[in-house]
C-alpha cells in the first residue's frame, strides 16, 4: 500500500504497448518462478500457479530451492519479491 498518487498519463502509444505486453504476460507462462515472502515463511511459486510449489522457513532455503530449479532447467528465471510484491532482484 505504498503506491502514491499523481503523475500524468503516459503517451497513448507507450501505454498501448505496455498494455499489450501485460496482456501477453498474464496469459502465458515462460517457466519463471517467484520467490515470495509470506507471514513467517518464504515460498516458491511457479508462474501462473494458484498455489505455492514449495514452502521454506527462511529466504536462503527458498533461494537455494529456486536456484536448483534454474540449474536443472525446471525454471527459466527467478523473480525474488520484497514484502510489497515488488521485484527485489531477478536471476536467470
Amino acid at each position: 500500500m505504498s503506491k502514491k498518487k499523481s503523475r500524468v498519463l503516459t503517451s497513448g502509444k507507450v501505454k498501448s504497448r505496455i498494455t499489450r505486453r501485460l496482456n501477453i504476460a498474464a496469459s502465458t507462462t515462460e517457466g519463471q518462478v517467484h520467490v515470495i515472502p509470506r507471514s513467517s515463511a518464504w515460498i516458491i511459486k511457479k508462474e501462473g500457479a494458484e498455489r505455492a510449489y514449495r514452502v521454506y522457513d527462511v529466504k536462503a532455503k527458498a533461494l537455494a530451492g529456486a536456484r536448483s530449479m534454474l540449474s536443472s532447467g525446471l525454471a527459466s528465471s527467478i523473480v525474488i519479491h520484497d514484502k510489497y510484491g515488488r521485484i527485489d532482484s531477478i536471476e536467470s
Binding site: L22, R51, G85
Partner: peptide, 11 residues
C-alpha cells in the same frame, strides 16, 4: 500470489 505476479509483470 496473483498480486505478486502482477506487480512483477508490471514492473
Amino acid at each position: 500470489l496473483e498480486y505478486n505476479e502482477f506487480v512483477s509483470d508490471l514492473q
